[in-house]
Nucleic acid binder design. Structure first.
Lengths: 117, 117
DNA sequence: CTGCATCCCCACGGATACTG
DNA sequence: CAGTATCCGTGGGGATGCAG
């Protein structure tokens, strides 16, 4: 668990703010740049490009450019990216299953600290 | 995948920089505050406390205080926290399995962009 | 030992404008 | 449409000090 532990760096990328979301969307198949923007409305062009680049750099996503009149670019998961699919969806599903419990725990906690002495 | 999607918030906590690490350590059983510091050398007191509080607030970890001479505090996972164990370790194991491939992909990518036109 | 509060810095990330 | 460059604010998070 030391700072040098290599998997920590890997985890950081995979669990980064936008990384997870992008990966989840890409798990649905290939998508164009603008499609990704629409899929995640609150991401900026800047962050979308940058996060995409990180995923590409880590060999998780592949970029394919079509030199059409208005250029279009497609992104899809690589084999490595697909191997992440299972553990990641497991985590996402856990999050969905647990959100109610967490919400309740949070409300209780806040109530306790606010009221409770 | 909208900004309001509740699971996004949940994921953010669980996948936060120190959250993952703390959870992984706590999966090994109960730990004292100072033990956690030693387990994750590069976390500051401040962040340790804060992250612990977040986990507690979300009902993932439980805090137990012993009013001994020098006070001691123990942290352990709750039932909800334990339910996260499986998906999270799956992800960590994936990270460990894949780190070599990712390192290679990264080297190749950097080499290509540096040299390649 | 545990854990708040304060100060402070920097990089994460948003908005905007420009190019191919 | 896709991507880059620039500017700049916010807050994450480190260091330190005090308190129970």
């Amino acid at each position: 668990m030391s700072a040098e532990c290599p998997s920590r760096e890997v985890l950081q990328h995979v669990t980064s703010r936008w990384g997870v979301l992008l990966l989840v969307v890409l798990m649905g198949g290939m998508h164009r740049f603008s499609e990704l923007r629409r899929a995640i409305p609150d991401i900026s062009k800047r962050m979308l490009t940058q996060t995409l680049r990180d995923l590409e750099r880590d060999g998780l996503a592949a970029r394919r450019v079509f030199p059409t009149k208005p250029p279009s670019v497609e992104y899809r998961l690589t084999a490595l990216g697909n191997s992440l699919l299972e553990p990641l969806t497991a985590l996402v599903m856990w999050a969905e299953r647990s959100q109610t419990k967490i919400k309740r725990a949070r409300a209780e906690f806040d109530g306790a600290t606010a009221a409770g002495a």
